[in-house]
Amino acid sequence: MIPNLDWLADAACAGMDSRAFFATGHHARAQVNAARRVCKTCPVQPHCRDWAIQTGEYWGVWGGMSQLELRRKRRRFTSSARTGTRAAA
């Protein structure tokens, strides 16, 4: 099944260099904060975040969430999927 990614066209980051969302080096925290500022203005932020969690994106800022935040959220998502319960967002 091919996922519906139509929301990508409406993303605030559409057309931006994707490297802006994958922080590296000594200025990683500043890069993450800059990426989050873009995400904050994005009309499809929830779609992006949910897609990243469900597909297991491991690196980068997605839907305004850092790598660490995504991993934590993913653990809750996969844990609730295994038990059949829904974790609080």
Rank of each mutant, 00 (worst) to 15 (best):
M65R: 01
D50I: 02
A35G: 07
L5P: 00
S79L: 09
R19M: 10
G64C: 04
G63P: 05
D17I: 00
C39L: 05
R37W: 06
T85I: 12
N33K: 09
V61A: 12
E57R: 05
M16F: 12
N33Q: 15
E57P: 08
E69C: 04
P43F: 02
V61Y: 03
W7N: 03
S80C: 07
D10F: 08
H27L: 11
R76Q: 12
A89I: 02
V32Y: 02
A89P: 06
T55S: 15
G60F: 02
T55C: 14
T55V: 15
N33S: 15
E69A: 08
C48W: 00
W62D: 00
R37P: 07
S66D: 11
L5Y: 11
H27E: 14
Q67E: 15
N4D: 15
R72E: 14
W7E: 01
G64I: 02
I2S: 13
T85G: 10
G15I: 02
H27Q: 14
R71S: 14
C39Q: 03
A28F: 10
G60N: 06
T55W: 08
R76S: 11
W51T: 11
R49E: 06
G64L: 01
E57S: 13
S79A: 15
Q67R: 06
R19T: 09
P3K: 03
H26M: 11
D10L: 07
R74T: 13
L70A: 10
A28R: 04
A35Y: 00
N4G: 11
A14N: 05
M16D: 15
D10H: 08
S80G: 15
T24K: 09
F21E: 07
G64D: 00
Q54A: 15
K40T: 12
A30C: 07
A81I: 03
R29S: 14
L8Q: 11
K40R: 12
R72V: 13
T83I: 06
V44A: 04
A35C: 09
N4R: 14
S18L: 09
L68T: 11
F21C: 04
P46H: 09
W62L: 01
M16Q: 13
D17Y: 08
I53F: 05
R76G: 10
M65I: 05
R36K: 15
G60Y: 01
S79Q: 10
M65E: 09
